[in-house]
């Protein structure tokens, strides 16, 4: 099994506060990995370390075969990233957005042209290719942002709450795109607050107070904790710490 992401006791401290507390995980190539946790549990900090934006205080992590502490630049070249804000420029057209992101990832003009045609075709956006993104429906923007995040064919794509504020049908469509990407061998590392989405993942981890409280496939986790759903399990784990704090 090829590993896309591995971490060993990955830790990030801000002064006396430990945001990420010695997490260890492994994500296989082509896997859809759900990274769950309540707000403030340390998901964002962990993701920032994995995407090369922030250096670990201690521990190790490797992404696409590169070390996060020593080779953040190589990591950036080999990953895609999409956030819940969709990260598109609203005043630029569909085509201009694709070309811009192709450009900043250093694609050649020829490749940008090929990629642009391919994306317009795949997403069925050819008719609106010269329309400013701001006048597209939310679902289209989301699909476009997802495809653009992989314009440079990265080995791994990080999705930070990609479906925030989107209706269930559009979310369902979006997950079809995720599956399609995974089928092509791309690793998908996704954070979400929707527990039904967690069930779609190959494996998930639930972060509580900077630590990984549970990790495994959704069905195995439910069996292990005798929980009827991931939602139930999530609430239970989060409640334990709240009680502990009190």
């Amino acid at each position: 099994m090829n590993l896309a992401i591995t971490t060993e006791s990955l830790t990030k401290k801000f002064g006396a506060f430990t945001a990420v507390d010695a997490i260890s995980l492994e994500v296989a190539q082509g896997e859809i990995f759900g990274f769950l946790g309540a707000n403030g549990a340390g998901k964002t900090t962990a993701m920032r370390m994995l995407t090369g934006l922030s250096r670990p205080t201690s521990g190790r992590a490797s992404v696409a075969g590169f070390d996060v502490s020593r080779q953040p630049e190589q990591i950036k070249r080999n990953i895609g990233y999409m956030s819940q804000k969709f990260s598109l420029y609203e005043d630029l057209t569909v085509k201009e957005n694709i070309r811009f992101y192709g450009g900043i990832y250093g694609l050649s003009l020829k490749n940008i042209g090929i990629k642009t045609e391919q994306l317009l075709e795949e997403l069925d956006l050819r008719e609106v290719s010269k329309t400013p993104v701001k006048s597209l429906p939310l679902g289209w923007k989301q699909k476009l942002a997802f495809s653009i995040s992989q314009v440079h064919d990265p080995a791994i794509v990080f999705l930070d709450e990609p479906t925030g504020g989107v209706d269930p049908i559009t979310r369902r469509h979006f997950w079809e795109l995720i599956y399609r990407a995974a089928d092509k061998g791309r690793t998908v590392f996704v954070t979400t607050h929707y527990m039904d989405e967690a069930e779609y993942c190959d494996r998930i981890s639930i972060m509580v107070d900077g630590k990984i409280a549970a990790m495994g496939s959704p069905s195995a986790l439910k069996k292990e904790h005798q929980a009827p759903s991931i939602n139930e399990l999530f609430v239970r784990l989060a409640r334990v710490t709240t009680a502990g704090l009190g």
């Binding site: 995407t51 990233y81 420029y89 900043i104 995040s149």
Partner: peptide, 11 residues
């Protein structure tokens, strides 16, 4: 707009 994040994650 949140695009800064994406730019920073880019090379």
């Amino acid at each position: 707009l949140g695009t800064m994040e994406v730019l920073l994650v880019s090379p």
